[in-house]
Amino acid sequence: MEVRTIKVFTTVDNINLHTQVVDMSMTYGQQFGPTYLDGADVTKIKPHNSHEGKTFYVLPNDDTLRVEAFEYYHTTDPSFLGRYMSALNHTKKWKYPQVNGLTSIKWADNNCYLATALLTLQQIELKFNPPALQDAYYRARAGEAANFCALILAYCNKTVGELGDVRETMSYLFQHANLDSCKRVLNVVCKTCGQQQTTLKGVEAVMYMGTLSYEQFKKGVQIPCTCGKQATKYLVQQESPFVMMSAPPAQYELKHGTFTCASEYTGNYQCGHYKHITSKETLYCIDGALLTKSSEYKGPITDVFYKENSYTTTIK
Rank of each mutant, 00 (worst) to 15 (best):
H18A: 12
T76Q: 08
V3K: 14
F80G: 02
N157V: 05
F259P: 00
M245V: 02
E68P: 07
M245N: 00
V221C: 08
M85E: 05
M85K: 09
E168M: 14
V203G: 07
Q175K: 14
K280S: 09
T292H: 11
P248L: 11
C227I: 00
G267V: 05
T260C: 15
H273R: 00
Q98T: 13
A117K: 04
A154T: 07
T199L: 11
Y73E: 02
T27A: 15
I15R: 12
H276W: 09
P60K: 08
K183T: 10
L88S: 05
Q175C: 07
I301P: 00
I105F: 04
N111E: 04
H74S: 07
G161S: 05
Q237F: 13
W107C: 03
Y137N: 05
V236R: 05
L17H: 14
A262T: 01
Y36V: 05
V3H: 11
K298E: 09
S246M: 00
C261A: 03
K218F: 04
R4Q: 15
L173S: 01
I15L: 08
D38Q: 14
F174R: 03
Q222T: 13
C156E: 02
A117N: 01
N110L: 01
A69E: 12
K106W: 04
Y265W: 01
S279P: 03
A136K: 04
M85L: 15
E281F: 00
C261Q: 00
T11F: 05
G228H: 03
T10P: 06
L186D: 06
T43D: 09
Y269I: 08
F128A: 02
K275Y: 00
T258H: 15
L102Y: 07
E125H: 13
N49E: 15
K275M: 05
H273L: 02
F259N: 04
A247I: 02
V243M: 05
S295W: 12
Q123R: 01
K280D: 08
L200I: 14
T192G: 13
H18P: 06
P47C: 08
N49V: 13
N187D: 08
I301S: 01
A40N: 15
N111P: 03
A247Y: 03
P241I: 00
Y269F: 14
P248D: 07
G29F: 12
R66M: 13
S240N: 01
A250L: 10
C227P: 01
Y274R: 00
V67T: 13
E281C: 02
S50K: 13
S79C: 07
D109N: 08
P97K: 07
T64G: 14
A145E: 03
H48G: 12
L283K: 00
N16V: 07
T226R: 14
E296L: 12
Y306Q: 04
H256R: 13
K255M: 09
E144M: 09
Y138M: 12
K158W: 04
L212Y: 03
H176N: 08
N111R: 04
G210D: 01
Q270W: 14
Y28S: 04
Q196S: 13
Q134C: 15
T266M: 09
F70W: 12
E308D: 09
L179P: 04
V58K: 10
L291D: 06
V189K: 14
E215S: 11
L102T: 06
A250G: 10
V21L: 13
L173I: 11
A132E: 03
G39Y: 12
L37K: 11
L81H: 12
G220K: 03
V188S: 07
M207Q: 09
Y113C: 04
T55V: 14
E2M: 12
I152H: 03
Q31E: 09
G161N: 06
K293H: 10
T19G: 13
A87H: 06
T5P: 14
R83A: 10
L179S: 01
T169H: 04
Q122V: 03
N49R: 12
K298N: 08
T314K: 11
F148P: 02
K7A: 09
T199I: 15
C182L: 01
Q98N: 11
D77T: 06
E253A: 12
P34N: 11
K92I: 11
K280H: 08
V166R: 02
E52V: 14
L121E: 03
S181R: 14
Y306P: 00
G202A: 05
H18C: 09
C225S: 00
A132M: 05
D109Y: 04
T169V: 13
